[in-house]
Design a protein around this nucleic acid. Structure first.
Lengths: 117, 117
DNA sequence: TAAACATATCAACATATATTGATATGTTTA
DNA sequence: TAAACATATCAATATATGTTGATATGTTTA
């Protein structure tokens, strides 16, 4: 048994899983089939540590599953319904691209520059 | 035409819309039918300003639409596909409640206490 | 038009989040 | 078992986000 607060927490966290560019790219990339951490890192173009951390999150929450093969660990989509969810979301968002991008509250863009400079 | 980066930004922001407890509660509440700001505020139990701000976000991004009736403004779900999206997400999350709640990276819980005390 | 009511916006601030570089752990192979 | 490689974890930090109370705006009614 869960309180309504607990339910809301679960659902918002679940959707939060899809609200980060790195995690989202990982999922999109895995739609083509299983990939290991190195392949994903190259594909997405960020630090290996970030890919690895976000994979742990996606794995923990059952978006993806992991399979070790020697030195490599291959990740793949674990729940097919996630694919449907992503596609449905994209189809809704596609009709409203400009507005979504300029929403003053939803501004979780990929950070452009972290370094001093 | 959009770059892949721009597409990712749109989609992750879109899902980010569903990753906040207040916004999520608003959407759930509106599943029962249109409500005005006061009704939503009472229903959800937070400040009127927060409800109003989050409504502007949801409205801008086309989750909900607004209709003024005298002094009140009534909000309702504007895209029926959002309902399907929410339901699909919930059905996936329901199978993995405990893990999602304890994910170290997804910790966007509703703040418990802001005030000095 | 003034008062009352409903909603929206603003400024401030505490917390959450994403990210990286450095390092640790795990696996294979010489 | 040491070296090389692949992946995971850690610590630090800049930025994004959610929230509130105060205030402004808009609408009705006296």
């Amino acid at each position: 048994m869960q309180t309504i607060d607990e339910q809301i927490e679960v659902y918002t966290k679940f959707f939060h899983g899809l609200s980060n560019p790195t995690r989202y790219r990982i999922i999109l990339s895995l739609l083509d089939g299983p990939k290991n951490v190195g392949e994903l890192t190259e594909d997405i173009g960020c630090s290996q540590s970030l890919i690895s951390m976000q994979l742990q999150c996606l794995r923990w929450c059952n978006y993806v599953k992991a399979l070790r093969d020697g030195k490599n660990v291959y990740y793949s989509i674990s729940d097919e319904r996630v694919i449907a969810l992503v596609q449905l979301g994209q189809s809704i968002a596609d009709g409203n691209t400009d507005k979504i991008c300029t929403c003053e509250i939803l501004k979780n863009e990929k950070y452009i520059e972290n370094k001093e400079g």
